[in-house]
Design a protein around this nucleic acid. Structure first.
Lengths: 237, 237
DNA sequence: TAATTGAGTAAGTGATTACTTACTATCATC
DNA sequence: GATGATAGTAAGTAATCACTTACTCAATTA
């Protein structure tokens, strides 16, 4: 069976065997386990996976180093314990539902996109450290990349493309652009804002209050930036 | 003097002193020096800075480990030797010139943006490994982040905002959007395409030939994705 | 040609790494 | 009150880390 053909459940099971990932989220974690995960989140996100030492994590968590290995088997096991539940939450209908709910409202697209961006920006910023770990490490850890591609991205794209095609039929979205271009553009505007604000170049690429920026984002993605003199040039008219 | 008030030249000099960076690019590198830099580029980009060992780099370059330290003083010095010249090239008018040349042509913005995206996509893809190192490590190395922010980003933004404001006056670009929003949106569409194609989710976010994708990118940023039913909703009309 | 210089390296250095072993303390169950 | 089972850890382990020392050799300079 090829890697990419594994279902989410099969993939999780495979990881679980290799790294002792306990999937039963019900069985409550010890106080020390929680503190280890919290410490790991901070140190992984500050120094990256390779730059983080288990001794530093143990020290920050206030436990002996061996305790980490008792619970998580290996350093990589610790990383996956931290990150896989987060990914699996996103892949779950549970976290995809706000998106669906927002996209299915009977409102002008301006308002709808505004709400969508506000919701997703909020989600990412509320979990910035974990998001950073997942994004950076997915560049170096094939398992993570595979997971993001096959499950998170795919799930989102299915929801998105479904709506976009309906909007095309209803004349609310241009039907002369392929669906993937529209989906990518919507995402790009949001990601660009998050990068500019959080990491890259705050100060001159993000200057106003968030509420106002979100309105502009929705405006740009819907109507573009062309002025009256350039409007006729579109192939759609 | 605050970090951010250093000029590019002062900053380079400061780095040079700390890490023995030889700025005189004229004095030709040894064959072995070239091979070390080449090996470092591959291994840094594959494993990240912390994950890359100097012994692995030496092995790949076919030199003794000590040779690396003879030339670059420390592992971090090696990283900066690799990365600073690349950044400084971008900050230089020399590499900014293609952008200026493209943006100052007397053509419809559709064509202009198409050309701009083609040019920048080309540049990034031709130097993908270095770009990856710079982006990832700038998340963890403050010197790199500082350099990108104060010199590359600033330089680009100055060129961009100048043109955008002129276009506003000429009615070629909407004057009801702030300049930074326009600049950010243009960049976002480009970055989104690069991420989708190279790293994140090729396959369903990038499906067509590059030439065609570039046309769509220019189209979306100029005219948006709204269909006839939603067009009236804009605040600009 | 004697002296100097820079490229290059073999063989280390102590520190730190991820991970183990062998142990104690606590607590529920029979 | 003996029996496991689990949580936790002190004190290791071998391997690897970034970096140094002390040297050779070839080319240049005086």
């Amino acid at each position: 069976m090829k890697e990419s053909e594994k279902s989410w459940e099969e993939w999780i099971e495979w990881i679980a065997q290799d790294y002792g990932l306990n999937l039963d989220r019900q069985d409550r974690e010890t106080d020390k386990q929680k503190r280890i995960l919290e410490a790991a989140m901070h140190i992984f996100s500050e120094r990256g996976f390779e730059g983080a030492s288990t001794s530093a994590i143990a020290h920050r968590a206030g436990v002996a180093e061996a305790t980490i290995f008792k619970h998580y088997r290996s350093k990589k096991g610790l990383l996956l314990h931290l990150v896989i539940p987060a990914i699996s939450k996103v892949a779950t209908p549970y976290l995809l539902q706000p998106v669906v709910k927002i996209l299915d409202q009977d409102k002008p697209l301006d308002e709808l996109f505004h709400e969508f961006y506000a919701n997703r920006v909020n989600l990412v910023e509320g979990n910035w450290k974990k998001v950073k770990i997942i994004l950076v490490e997915s560049l170096f850890q094939p398992e993570l990349r595979e997971a993001l591609h096959n499950h998170v991205a795919k799930a989102f794209y299915e929801v998105a493309s479904d709506r976009i095609e309906r909007w095309k039929r209803e004349g609310r979205v241009r039907d002369d652009l392929p669906t993937h271009v529209i989906a990518r553009s919507i995402l790009s505007i949001g990601i660009g804002y998050l990068l500019a604000k959080n990491k890259a170049f705050p100060g001159f690429l993000v200057q106003e209050e968030e509420e106002q920026e979100l309105v502009w984002m929705a405006d740009v993605i819907l109507h573009g930036i062309a002025g009256p003199k350039e409007k006729g040039a579109s192939s759609r008219d």
